[in-house]
Nucleic acid binder design. Structure first.
Lengths: 203, 203
DNA sequence: CGGTGAAGTAATCAATTGATTACCTCTTGG
DNA sequence: CCAAGAGGTAATCAATTGATTACTTCACCG
């Protein structure tokens, strides 16, 4: 995301800022992510970040809504392929792979995790609950998961996301950590660890 | 935690500040939790909070270490009761109850969750990974869980913690939310929801 | 051309916040 | 009593940060 690009259309710039904000909020959370860090990541001025979205709060809301949108879109794409002939296990791993795809755009899942930590907030709290329930409803009703299967699926997803948030892959040489990572992430473990190698490490 | 108490010994005051900090950091996270909010919660001056612990960073470190300590202590207490005759399911629900106990002191689990979100941080990142691996090791080696059982156990714990962090119990009248809560928390659901009623809501 | 509107920024502001300092106020032992 | 040390705070600082404003630059159209 260097500063090498010249002028962009409002629409393109908007996308670029959203991408930068997703990365920054994903790493630092809402309170910890500054509009200045986002601006630097996008190669523009801090003033423009704020002006384009009105406020940091609005920007985070858009980041969160995009993230949920991507998650739901990815799930729906998989669900639409269901024939009704699959075993439950097949459905579960298909959705699991969809989830795995999202790891590539790491900020998406991490931003959502940070959103979920803001339940106390009068703005983000309701947003978090609505978002989570929306995805749960999707998996229950459209993917046809039982309450137990859906809960297991989300539980595993949350553990995987937290392992990424804490950068557990940094410890993959530790046998205990590797066991945990590969047990939790299952067959996608290798792919995810590989993806993770090019971690920005823009701490 | 009113301001009704007079002078306390350094030791008592320290405990009180740690309790206040656990609650505040649990709700707002590290970046979002101010030393001033902690001071108000403890009924003392902001200056004293900082002076007692040297820095906000040190304070959060102590909060996090205490939280992990409590979690491990609770687990060890349960594990020490194991006879070697239980089924795996019995062991799992015994540890699950131990986890449930900690919900009473809600800040503990939520502070840990926020710690886990700080994997990028040069100080808190390593702390988070060490802490998590320490508890995992405990469950694997001392409680005798297989990698799969341990992973399932942690996955469920993470989902439960996130549901608390996002205040999903506020939505318990929504059938979908209630289904999710009761499926994830299992038999302890009622007790946890009851505990949650007296949520401080000190947003 | 020239001017008009969109893209973008430098400069600056006001509020917040972690930290520091100098001071106050009890208690307690000699 | 009184000195000394521990508990504790008011006042203040410097840095950070989200937001605002006035300005600049550039593309394009008539």
């Amino acid at each position: 995301m260097g500063a090498t690009e010249g002028r962009l259309s409002s629409e393109d710039r908007r996308e670029q800022i959203l991408a930068a904000a997703t990365a920054v909020f994903g790493e630092r959370g809402y309170a910890g992510g500054t509009t200045d860090a986002i601006a630097r990541e996008a190669g523009i001025s801090q003033a423009y970040v704020v002006r384009m979205f009105g406020s940091k709060e609005q920007l985070f809301l858009e980041v969160a809504r995009r993230a949920v949108g991507r998650l739901e879109a990815e799930f729906r794409a998989v669900i639409s392929q269901f024939s009704g002939e699959e075993t439950m296990l097949e459905r579960q791993s298909a959705l699991g792979r969809a989830y795995g795809e999202l790891v590539a755009d790491r900020g998406i899942l991490l931003s959502l995790l940070h959103l979920f930590g803001l339940g106390h907030d009068p703005v983000f709290g309701p947003e978090a609950r609505d978002s989570f329930l929306g995805v749960y409803r999707l998996v229950r009703e459209e993917a046809g998961f039982s309450p137990e299967d859906a809960t297991d699926f989300f539980a595993r997803g949350m553990l995987n996301t937290i392992l990424l948030a804490m950068r557990m892959p940094d410890r993959k040489e530790d046998p205990m950590a590797f066991e945990l990572l590969s047990t939790s992430m299952g067959p996608q473990c290798e792919a995810i660890l590989a993806l993770y190698e090019d971690a920005p490490a823009r701490a």
